[in-house]
Amino acid sequence: METTQTTTQQDSLLERLFAHGHLLKTGVDGVYGRGGEMHDIIEAVDNYITRFGRDGDTEVMMFPPVMSRASVMKNGYMSSFPHLLGSIHAFTGNQQAYGAMMEDINSCCEWGHHLSMSDVVLTPAACYPIYPTLTGNLPEFGRLIEVASYCFRHEPSQDPARMQSFRMHEFVRVGAPEVVQAWREGWIERAQQFLQNLGLTLHVTPANDPFFGAGGRLLKANQKDQGLKFELVVQINPNDQDQGTAVISCNYHQDHFTSKYEIMTHDGQLAHTSCIGFGVERIVLALLATHGMKSSEWPAEVRKELWP
């Protein structure tokens, strides 16, 4: 009984988003078009993240929503999250191979084995493409980078807060361990202010990434034990009273990326990195769920922050 009610409520948020034209159906769970008003809100939130978070010395880097396959193998994503990666394959065969493939396609068989791996995968996290560009010695005070991208994670769901294709906007600090730690500590406070400015009620909770398999259980425990990930959680679905949805995450990677890409401080020590990731659609969904489906009727102070 309870399950039925939960499903209905969850569907109703998705249905309401469809009904208002905020999300457009594509026939695939978790992959949606954005209507005009939704697009405007997404742009406004994206711009607000920049206005709120960009400091004087922030460097901007932007990449397309695909990245090097070699890089997700080198940075450990493929071994830790093989269930989430979207890998791009393409047909590279001759006429004979084409015939065999079309035969399978026309008889509704699996035809993936006719394709070959390409050099690219769908970017799973906006900050991943920046690390290979940072190899070498950093300037004295490290670097601060803003990056944003569409990201992909293969987890089909009818929960509108768990899209397969979504925007992630990040600030990344690279430098000496103590500098990076202090920066992240500051951002755990700062990110709460960001959400409060938008009239959202939140709580902060230690979290872990969804590492795959048996080994993943230990990685999750390690990540939580060491306090490497904090999430800012907001209620989006009326049915998830217990958990809520993470809309911003504050991550401390230690030397995970710097050791793989030989990113060193100015005096030759292994640098550390941290990133603050904003889930843009999730923030927009939180705004719609909290303030109503029509952005023109949102509280004036919230509108003023987003459309100054």
């Binding site: 048996a214 080994g215 993943g216 230990l218 990685l219």
Partner: peptide, 8 residues
Amino acid sequence: SHASVNVM
């Protein structure tokens, strides 16, 4: 952490 997984 990743090495500890292999140990486990």
